[in-house]
Amino acid sequence: MNKMNKYINSREIIDRIVEVTGWTKTKIAKDIFGIDLSNLGNRIRGDRLNFYKLINWALHTDVNIEWLVTGERNSETADTVSVTCKDDFETAELVEKTKQVVQSDTIYGAALKTNIHSFHQAMAGEEKYKAIEERLEKVGCKHLVSIDGVRIRYDDPPQQKEEIVKRRVF
């Protein structure tokens, strides 16, 4: 059968998404199409899926769009059908956007690289600090290094930030 003349069945597309991701229809509706489950049901019954969003999702998850739409496997698509889908489409989209900015030869790319390194270092430091806190709590000494009184947030008033810095033990 000529693939161009084949009828596209929305229900089968959703079933293939379930097959490759293991997601519920509620998660598919929310994460791929940005709609609720009842709206997805209406779109399935009317064969009116948003193919722009479907294609965008497939590109970000390496799911072969031809297989997704037609269900037909061939030597070129067989390997890509089994690719594990990313659990969080929003994260995949952010990673793609981040990649574009970082790879750009702009001041934004340089700034984002610096921020990513800084955030990663801060996150790693906080995780180490929390691990120390947990170990000290087990022996009854958490009060010696509680992180709650030494964390500075961007919305803290300047005077409060100065007081926090003075309380820090280096």
Rank of each mutant, 00 (worst) to 15 (best):
D155Y: 11
H117M: 04
V165Y: 11
C85P: 03
V169A: 14
G149L: 12
V20Q: 10
D155V: 10
K30Y: 07
D155K: 12
T77E: 11
L136M: 13
E134K: 15
A78E: 12
D62K: 08
I44Q: 03
D155S: 14
S118Q: 13
K142R: 14
K3F: 08
I13R: 01
A92G: 10
P157Q: 15
I8R: 11
K97A: 09
L59T: 03
T114H: 06
F33I: 06
P158W: 14
A122S: 13
S75V: 10
K161T: 12
F51W: 01
S75A: 12
P157N: 15
K6D: 11
K30H: 07
K161N: 11
T61C: 10
C85S: 10
I147Y: 13
I132M: 09
Q160A: 15
E96G: 01
N5L: 08
T91E: 12
Y129W: 12
V18K: 13
Y108A: 13
N64Q: 03
D105K: 07
N115T: 08
R151A: 11
N56A: 14
T80F: 03
R153T: 14
I152G: 10
G149D: 15
V20N: 05
D62S: 07
E162S: 13
R48I: 00
S75E: 14
S118H: 08
R43N: 01
D87W: 10
K113N: 09
R153I: 15
R48C: 06
K161I: 15
S104N: 06
V83W: 06
